[in-house]
């Protein structure tokens, strides 16, 4: 039982990481019908900004955190203007390829600027964790889980109960109609990119103390987050969260009770099963292919 609880905690913790990154995927997909393959690199870039501020420049942790997130807002804006905007009237394929290109550019840009050394980023808390009975709760995982819960609530409130959120929803559902109603579609899409970059950045800042800061930290998480998005139902916020958590728990228990080397295999096996039997995901609606 102790073992199960410990595994469950870790599974939820790692799943929350996937969920945070998956959220960024979903928001951009809803707004633009495009998968942003640079979502993982947002996490990586934010973590490096954090390392520069908190470690190299020795600024206070909270200030570095704010600077990193503000930096990500700028990255999101530039990304929107440089990658999405010029291609917005094309089909989804050139945009997707442009996001792949942007992700390669970001990874190698950081490599060129900061060098290849993996970096250590201290966590939020002095205490690394607490022992609760038989279960060890890593403080950084606790923080990640808490932030995920808060974000779920925030997203629900933001998209369902604010005018800006409703405008964003309208844009994602039907751009032409939204524009007829006087909503500036390109502004809404720009806001989505900025928000997604900040979310991706937040995920990066939260996992960096656990997985270290390295050039490839984003891509490893993003692959799982992408799978989580498909399992949850592409385009569904709740689905992304559930998908992420499910993936984290499945791979942790799969590793513990079946096979450690095939840990990643379980995640992708679930993905394949979903693609075959329920391609629209847990929460997705069956829709005809978008033209």
């Amino acid at each position: 039982m102790d073992l199960v609880l410990q595994l469950l905690f870790t599974g939820i913790g790692i799943g929350a990481v996937y969920a945070l990154v998956a959220l960024g995927f979903v928001l951009i997909f809803r707004a633009t019908n495009v998968v942003n393959f640079a979502q993982g690199e947002f996490s990586m870039v934010a973590a490096y900004i954090m390392v520069v501020c908190a470690v190299d420049l020795a600024l206070p942790y909270w200030l570095s955190f704010i600077i990193a997130l503000a930096g990500m807002a700028v990255v999101g804006l530039v990304f929107n203007l440089g990658v999405y905007y010029p291609l917005r009237h094309r089909t989804y394929l050139p945009v997707i390829i442009a996001t792949i290109g942007a992700s390669i550019l970001m990874a190698n840009g950081v490599l060129a600027l900061y060098g290849p050394q993996p970096q250590v980023l201290p966590g939020w808390f002095e205490t690394p964790g607490i022992q609760l009975g038989p279960v060890y709760l890593d403080s950084q995982y606790l923080l990640i889980i808490a932030v995920t819960v808060v974000l779920v609530i925030f997203n629900y409130w933001f998209f369902e109960h604010t005018m800006l959120g409703k405008k964003l929803q309208a844009t994602s559902q039907d751009k032409e109609m939204a524009s007829l109603l006087g909503i500036s579609v390109s502004t809404m899409i720009m806001i989505t990119f900025i928000y997604s970059a900040v979310l991706g950045g937040l995920a990066g800042l939260l996992v960096a103390p656990l997985l270290f800061v390295s050039i490839q930290m984003g891509s490893t998480i993003a692959l799982k987050a992408f799978a989580a998005t498909i399992i949850g139902g592409f385009g569904d916020v709740a689905g992304a969260i559930i998908g992420g958590l499910a993936l984290g728990i499945i791979e942790t228990f799969g590793a513990a009770y079946i096979s450690v080397p095939y840990k990643d295999g379980f995640a992708f096996l679930v993905l394949v099963l979903f693609l075959v039997f329920r391609p629209q995901g847990i929460f997705g609606e069956r829709v005809a292919e978008k033209a």
Partner: peptide
């Protein structure tokens, strides 16, 4: 005797198996 795949993000199951 435990193998693991490179670039694992989490080793909790491995640590628990060693402990047990």
């Amino acid at each position: 005797d435990q193998g693991y795949a490179n670039q694992s993000q989490d080793f909790t199951p491995v640590v628990l198996a060693i402990k047990q």
